[in-house]
Deep mutational scan, measured.
Amino acid sequence: MPSETPQAEVGPTGCPHRSGPHSAKGSLEKGSPEDKEAKEPLWIRPDAPSRCTWQLGRPASESPHHHTAPAKSPKILPDILKKIGDTPMVRINKIGKKFGLKCELLAKCEFFNAGGSVKDRISLRMIEDAERDGTLKPGDTIIEPTSGNTGIGLALAAAVRGYRCIIVMPEKMSSEKVDVLRALGAEIVRTPTNARFDSPESHVGVAWRLKNEIPNSHILDQYRNASNPLAHYDTTADEILQQCDGKLDMLVASVGTGGTITGIARKLKEKCPGCRIIGVDPEGSILAEPEELNQTEQTTYEVEGIGYDFIPTVLDRTVVDKWFKSNDEEAFTFARMLIAQEGLLCGGSAGSTVAVAVKAAQELQEGQRCVVILPDSVRNYMTKFLSDRWMLQKGFLKEEDLTEKKPWWWHLRVQELGLSAPLTVLPTITCGHTIEILREKGFDQAPVVDEAGVILGMVTLGNMLSSLLAGKVQPSDQVGKVIYKQFKQIRLTDTLGRLSHILEMDHFALVV
């Protein structure tokens, strides 16, 4: 994948999101292997301009796509893939009243899908469409860049269908997702969380590099694949309309690839034109409109599966009536509230959605109805927002919020430890010299600072030695090549209790 991002070429006709291997024109390309080798690009942008032909009021008969309808489940399912879809609609009884809503608040519980998330729908649909058009064949390999849930859905379907599955996901995604993927037989590649989507090191860039190296491999490409919004247009939206008897006044959905909100909203605009569509985008993402909503100094966020630093091709923002931004604290607070007060075992993005819903639905009156999409299960986040310690460490809970008995030293300040200034190293000294210094002084790690004293990161003896043994660096290389740029900081005025929580999850903390 090139470091400079080429513009994806656009073909003359058809839909841009065809499933299957992508040609340089962004659509299915038939021909000899030699032709494909000559024409197939190194990668295709996940934010390529959409060429979708959908228009409100256009006859369904003019759609270029294969459409399906929700099917009634048999008493005995032939395999677990038949437990994807037909998820329950559940009334939220307490939270709406707590925040003064007059309307009825309903939750579409997508964590009841077989793999635990709304992404099971698009995973199965992308595979079925690729099999139907002859792209996927027995023994082929599926590769997908994902925040985890699409990966789980694909790995689940691949396990049943017999495909090899490789999932490329950023490091910030939970260990629970990784464990589930491994249990399903998927191979996992992790990428830096802070890598831009168009960087060769991003999950998108690495996935395309693997595709170019592995024979008979395919990126189904949830960011561009029409099967993504079509899955929701054909099934999720129809289920909502049936469950609500066609009567709903507002739908609120958090947005990642945009397939969920695009597919549902398009069908609702056709069948229930008075329904307002509300999009939820986390602070630090750029999906919301108008652009002024996205202006923030924050560039990272903890909530998973929603928000991006690019506009995915499948996201149709014209069908969203209003956007709201959400933050991590309210997302996790509301997710825990949904679990504790409503018994809905949902993930953090569901918290984002409901946090926005109780604001947006203030305009609705008694007798009206708001539906929220709860995308995934708490299963993926047992060591994250479900953990009091994690919430404390991230600053989303305060010590006084917890009532468990603490040891005698818990409320003492870090400054009472009488710490001395640490050994520091410059980023320009060599790895070999740094190892000598650390061994001589008896230290395992040291902060790396520039000549102005600005902290650049941390270097550890173990990481340097393993990097040297693996051949990633040489003793003569500058130590700046092996620094940890993500590390926890703590102030002298913070409590030892807070430091204790940090050290339970990290090997060190830097006192500043």
Rank of each mutant, 00 (worst) to 15 (best):
F111Y: 10
E131H: 03
L105D: 00
R161A: 09
P21C: 11
I127P: 05
P200S: 08
T146E: 04
D234G: 08
D234H: 03
A157F: 01
E213V: 11
K83Y: 10
S19N: 05
N212R: 14
L77Q: 11
P33Y: 04
I92P: 04
K72H: 10
I80H: 03
I264H: 06
P12G: 08
T146N: 05
C15W: 09
I240S: 00
S63E: 08
E201P: 10
I261C: 14
R18C: 04
G246C: 02
A195R: 05
I166K: 07
A159N: 13
V178E: 07
N113F: 00
F197M: 09
I188A: 05
P200L: 14
I95S: 02
G162Q: 06
I167Y: 07
D133F: 02
P16A: 07
K271T: 14
K75T: 10
V10N: 13
K94P: 01
P145R: 00
P2H: 13
N93S: 15
G263P: 01
N149D: 04
I127W: 05
A48T: 14
P2M: 15
K75I: 04
D221N: 11
N228L: 00
A195F: 03
L136H: 01
A107G: 12
G100L: 04
G115Y: 07
L230D: 08
L81M: 10
I143D: 04
P49T: 11
P145N: 01
F197Q: 07
Q55V: 11
A155K: 03
I84K: 08
A69W: 03
L154G: 01
K271R: 15
L105M: 01
P21V: 05
G14Y: 11
S27H: 12
K108I: 00
R224G: 11
L124C: 08
P59T: 11
A253F: 06
T260Q: 01
L248R: 02
N228V: 00
D79R: 09
R266D: 06
S175E: 14
K75V: 15
I261G: 03
G205F: 12
K108D: 05
C103R: 03
G274Q: 11
R121P: 02
P145H: 05
G162S: 07
A158Y: 01
L268Y: 03
S61F: 09
R161C: 08
S199W: 05
H232F: 04
T257P: 00
N212F: 09
A38C: 15
T135R: 10
L136S: 02
A107N: 03
K247A: 12
R266Y: 09
E9V: 12
V168I: 07
P192T: 08
P33L: 07
E171P: 07
K75W: 12
G57V: 09
A158R: 01
H65G: 00
N216S: 15
V180M: 08
V189F: 02
L105G: 01
Q55M: 11
L105C: 05
V252C: 08
C272Y: 09
E176L: 08
I240A: 01
S202K: 07
I92E: 04
K211N: 15
C109W: 05
H22T: 08
I167A: 09
P215E: 08
I92S: 08
L181H: 03
D179Q: 01
G20M: 09
S32T: 06
C275P: 01
N149Q: 02
H66M: 10
L181I: 06
L124A: 11
H65K: 03
L181Q: 03
K75L: 12
T87C: 02
P49F: 08
Y233I: 00
P192W: 02
A155W: 02
K82F: 10
C165K: 01
G134R: 12
C272I: 07
S174M: 00
S174G: 04
N93F: 02
I84V: 14
E37S: 14
C103V: 06
G57I: 08
E29P: 13
G85T: 02
W208N: 12
Q242P: 05
S19Q: 11
G57S: 12
T191Q: 00
K102A: 15
V160P: 04
D249C: 01
T141E: 04
D86W: 08
A8T: 11
D234V: 03
T235M: 09
K82L: 02
T5D: 02
T257Y: 00
S27L: 10
P192E: 06
G259Q: 01
A183P: 07
D238H: 09
N225A: 07
P6A: 09
M126P: 01
I219Y: 05
E104P: 02
T193L: 10
R121F: 02
G256Q: 01
M89Q: 01
A226L: 04
